[in-house]
Design a protein around this nucleic acid. Structure first.
Length: 651
RNA sequence: GCCCCGAUAGCUCAGCUGGAUAGAGCAAUUGACUUCUAAUCAAUAGGUCGCAGGUUCGAAUCCUGCUCGGGGUGCCA
């Protein structure tokens, strides 16, 4: 039962008498912006007034007269220019609360028309260590899938692994030339990881050596240009001088950027040069960059040795990734990686060709699109396919095989142009009926406001990130509650460490970049997982101290009483859980659920402060408050659960 | 050059399908622990919502221009 949708449905028929499609007007019914205006407000009378040539207040009065709300709205008031303010009847609120107590789903109705969603998220490159960039996709995608399922949709999570790329060429090359057999036998995952990093290092070295002269020449050229610009006399024309200064600034920035790049290249060169082993290897493997590409190409063309090695490596690589998902508590329904679509790529191209959508350009097979200057290239000049091709094959498979009504891609916002083109081509191709959505998210920034990197400029590894979050959480819980046994501290640290990390991500609007900060994500106060988890633990404390029998309470609810206003406020918040879930799904934004849970927890903290359960004035009031406690705990637990975050009975 | 995104309190960020005095947390100041966990609560202070126009009964939200920042931009993913 959802108060907002109930109100909307009551208004719907009446509004239909005034307009053809009341959808827009119904969207103007919303939770009240201020408690003094009641619980909900309908703002539709103002725009109607204009359209119907009557005063908005007149319209409002007419609406109020005609809409039947008596059974669950206490007062219906017209205020200001024509706002209709609605206050729910306490009895109705209590009825919903009772239903929620009795129901395992907290009386959240399932959607009338369930759809099939395929949610594509996480999608790391197998054989490369997972890094900070993967958490957002993983955590947001998981939360969205969970919410979709909870409200009754069929959500299929699919981890589109990068398991067919150049990184395998690197490992294969490494295996053939640098393998430590003993290490491979005892710890294959570690050894494969070492091989990847080793080959990567040599490749980066050669690439850097090749790029340095050009980069330095470019830097010198930029510096000369800058010197010329600086030496030029001001013209006296204001606009021109401003333009001139702007160019100087732009150029200076560019020079700084270039210098930084050269420094990073130098680091890579020096590391190899200063390590005798690496130096001699780099000399012996001078053609490694090309050789790795050839190994990859051989794999793709079905070379037996390489195919066999790939089959041997893949389970080890997956095992490594799996460890990370276990720590994060994430599971996928499918993990159909790029390799799964390999056989289909030629068909994708030939089908699009047959349908006349392609055009050859500079030897590549392209699909040209309106609104985009550059075409989508689906086959390279050398005959190889691209990720665009794989993505098209994937859409076809998801729609044909899973009967997907919607495909969601939880991927970095930098790929938005790629997805625009991809979806355009998919529509041309005949897959336009399904909803195709790029659920984009921003970059994780470091304290300097730049993308989060280690001091040496590498991306931050995910494993280390989780370790750090947990160890900081451990320190916090030890300080906070020294009496608990250490084993308990470790359990708590895992739940609040991982929870804090996930929540920090989910509570921000996914579209924005956000600053990664351990202290903030693990802070004990404020909008953090810890605060919500603490609210839950406090409820459990009450239940323990009052020796409440939760099962009995749930099976046989008593009457609710609102003695203080905060009890009613908490109650109203509790019955709005479903609205929060609906909000999440409008634009696939989990931060709406975070907001809701935070506000719920804040209200509970006030309730906790003002309303003693143990020493309530009467037995009936005590039971009523216990019931509010039980519902609060269940809502927080369920809500955090949908976000992939755990709770603790004691912390 | 072209395309996309952003600019809200000292800091980190919500709010953006137009709604009533613009919110939260942190930091600052002040009060509340013999009490169901103070990992808490209450209170004070803090704003030209980048700038300038426009649409509207009403604009942080929509439109146009500008400034500043970030990202992307045919054979990587």
């Amino acid at each position: 039962m959802n108060a907002l949708s109930e109100i909307k449905s009551r208004f719907s028929s009446v509004l239909s008498e005034f307009v053809d499609d009341p959808t827009e007007l119904l969207n103007m019914i919303r939770p009240a912006g201020d408690p003094k205006f009641g619980d909900y407000q309908a703002n539709c009378a103002m725009p109607m007034g204009k359209r119907l040539g009557k005063s908005p207040r007149e319209i409002a009065a007419e609406l109020v007269n005609r809409v039947s709300l008596d059974d669950f709205c206490e007062t219906v008031e017209i205020a200001g220019p024509g706002f209709i303010n609605l206050t729910l009847k306490d009895d109705w609120i209590k009825q919903i609360l009772t239903a929620a107590l009795l129901d395992d789903r907290l009386a959240i109705a399932k959607v009338a028309n369930p759809k099939t969603f395929v949610v594509d998220y996480s999608s790391p490159n197998v054989a490369k260590p997972m890094h900070v960039g993967h958490i957002r996709s993983t955590v947001i995608g998981d939360a969205i899938s969970n919410v979709l399922r909870f409200v009754g949709h069929d959500a299929i999570s699919d981890n589109h692994l990068g398991d067919w790329g150049t990184q395998f060429g690197m490992i294969i090359y490494g295996y053939k030339h640098f393998l430590d057999r003993e290490a491979y036998r005892t710890a294959p995952v570690t050894e494969l990881g070492r091989l990847y990093k080793h080959v990567r290092k040599l490749i980066d070295y050669h690439a850097a050596v090749a790029q340095l002269p050009e980069a330095e020449a470019k830097l010198a050229e930029l510096k000369t240009t800058l010197a010329e610009l600086v030496s030029r006399e001001p013209s006296g024309d204001k606009k021109e001088d401003k333009q001139h200064n702007k160019q100087i600034k732009l150029l200076s920035d560019k020079i700084a950027e270039h210098a930084e790049r050269i420094e990073s290249l130098m680091d890579k060169v020096n590391e190899v040069k200063n390590t005798p082993d690496l130096k001699s290897q780099s000399e012996r493997h001078s053609g490694i960059n090309q050789a790795v590409l050839l190994e990859t190409a051989a794999l793709h063309e079905g070379d037996e040795t390489n195919k066999k090695l790939w089959e041997e490596f893949l389970p080890y690589c997956r095992q490594d990734i799996q460890k990370m998902y276990e720590r994060l508590g994430i599971k996928f329904d499918y993990e159909l990686g790029e390799s799964f679509y390999h056989e289909e790529l030629a068909n994708v191209v030939s089908d699009l060709e047959a349908k006349g959508f392609t055009k050859e350009s500079d030897g590549a097979i392209c699909v040209f699109l309106d609104h985009h200057d550059a075409p989508m290239i689906i086959q390279k000049r050398d005959g190889a396919y691209l990720y665009a091709t794989t993505d098209l094959a994937t859409i076809k498979y998801r729609i044909d095989h899973f009967n997907a009504d919607a495909c969601l891609y939880v991927v970095d916002h930098r790929q938005s142009e790629h997805f625009e083109k991809l979806f355009d081509v998919a529509k041309l191709w005949g897959y336009g009926d399904a909803e195709l959505t790029h659920v984009a998210f921003g970059t994780v920034m470091g304290p300097d406001g730049k993308p989060y990197k280690t001091r040496s400029g590498d991306t931050v590894g995910l494993a280390g990130l989780l370790d750090e979050a947990e160890s900081r959480a451990l320190e916090i819980t030890r300080n906070q509650n020294p009496d608990l046994p250490d084993q308990r501290h470790k359990e708590i640290a895992t739940v609040i460490g991982i929870g804090g990390l996930k929540y920090a991500d989910l509570s921000h609007n996914r579209g924005s970049d956000y600053e990664f900060n351990y202290d903030k994500m693990l802070a004990l106060r404020g909008n953090t997982a810890t605060y919500l988890q603490y609210s839950y633990a406090r409820v459990q404390g009450i239940l323990r101290k009052t020796e409440a029998d939760v099962e009995a309470i749930r099976a046989n609810p008593s009457a609710f009483e609102f003695e203080l206003d905060i009890e009613r406020q908490l109650a109203v918040k509790l019955i709005r859980f479903g609205e929060a879930l609906d909000e999440v799904l409008v634009e696939y934004k989990p931060n709406f659920l975070c907001n809701y849970l935070f506000e719920l927890s804040q209200l509970f903290a006030q309730f906790f402060d003002q309303c003693s359960v143990k020493d309530a004035g009467s037995e009936s009031l005590k039971t009523s408050r216990l019931q509010l406690c039980v519902l609060t705990a269940r809502t927080i637990k369920t809500g955090l659960g949908l976000l992939g975050i755990g709770v603790l009975d004691q912390m």
